[in-house]
Design a protein around this nucleic acid. Sequence first.
DNA 1: GTGTATATCTCGGGG
DNA 2: CCCCGAGGTATACAC
Lengths: 219, 219
Amino acid sequence: MRLVIARCSVDYAGRLTAHLPLAVRLIMVKADGCVAIHADGGAYKPLNWMNAPNTVEELEDRWVVSSPKGETLTILIEEVLHDSAHELGVDPGLQKDGVEAHLQELLAANPTTIAEGLSLVRREYPTAIGPVDLLCRDADGSAVAVEVKRRGEIDGVEQLTRYLDRLNLDPLLRPVRGIYVAQVIKPQARTLATDRGIGCVEIDYDELRGIESDELRLF
Amino acid sequence: MRLVIARCSVDYAGRLTAHLPLAVRLIMVKADGCVAIHADGGAYKPLNWMNAPNTVEELEDRWVVSSPKGETLTILIEEVLHDSAHELGVDPGLQKDGVEAHLQELLAANPTTIAEGLSLVRREYPTAIGPVDLLCRDADGSAVAVEVKRRGEIDGVEQLTRYLDRLNLDPLLRPVRGIYVAQVIKPQARTLATDRGIGCVEIDYDELRGIESDELRLF
DNA sequence: GTGTATATCTCGGGG
DNA sequence: CCCCGAGGTATACAC
């Protein structure tokens, strides 16, 4: 990884055009060739960047970064204040816990935490327009489509609605009702869901994880 | 901005929990206090980060970054390979061109490029669930709601549908038809739009900009 | 490769 | 402050 602190102006032309006036910034070049221009603030997102693959042409007063898609990033360098290179090696990568996939796993293993008497048919039940998170049957044997989100916003209701429309075309499943499950469900999403006859369930991730641990402890 | 290259392991606990095994990485600390852990690849996104505002506690063998929301980032440092600090100053910021806002401006100025006889009522026409990009009237005086996107995907159709439902409750506007305008409209989006009686128009950004320049040239 | 859904999304605007 | 929408979204995953 190469780190350059320089007084520079930057122009990007590609999916849009963008210009950065002259200022002191960090130019980060990673081993895979990607380039990022950072200011001294504004979260982790760089002001401007170029993803790999690309070619970096280093001229006297400017760097020209070009991608095969026809994008270009031109860095006019007026003054270099720091320039260093470092060997980092390959990163073993990030281990995550607590994202939607894990929430879905926990719910699949414990469908009764969503609603009394619910049993799982399958996870990622396929339809022509995409997979339904959980397809279940309730105590009466009726089909229930469950959409899982970490945060329950309006687009999840739209998503579940599209799936329900599709599933209700299948005579073997019909009638299918929907349940929207999330750690928090926003008021707009709840209103829309209720209007459409979709149930809303808020679940506690830590509590669910607790149930899971308890079950494991029995063995 | 402080740049540290170090052999370290990292743990984040907050919106999720995440762990990074021991490896050499860049630790970037910006003037506003935000911290980002970068590997030598993987585009511009850091492996792990903590946004401002936060407090950084620098101990003998570890840094503990805590946010007021209760998130923590713990960096266990085994070996420091580089450590430098740099004054960057305030950045003048990015100037953009070619995004949806500009597309919307151009269309607002030239509504007939969307459909023959169309005239603008107003941009960002407010409804209870959000603003409609363009509200127009056609040659017959009927209301037309226009949703503008750079890329026409399925969520834009959902958005326009919600607006149309809402607008059609207004006796002064009713009946309102919809037109979905984008540089490219994906097949799925076109199908859904057509099913719902929504028109689809693909427009050429460069051509539209050309029309605009021609008009300016007349003055 | 296209299409779909997620993200510690980030970022900005409006009420 | 939250809500909502856009993004050069990027990224993963299924078909």
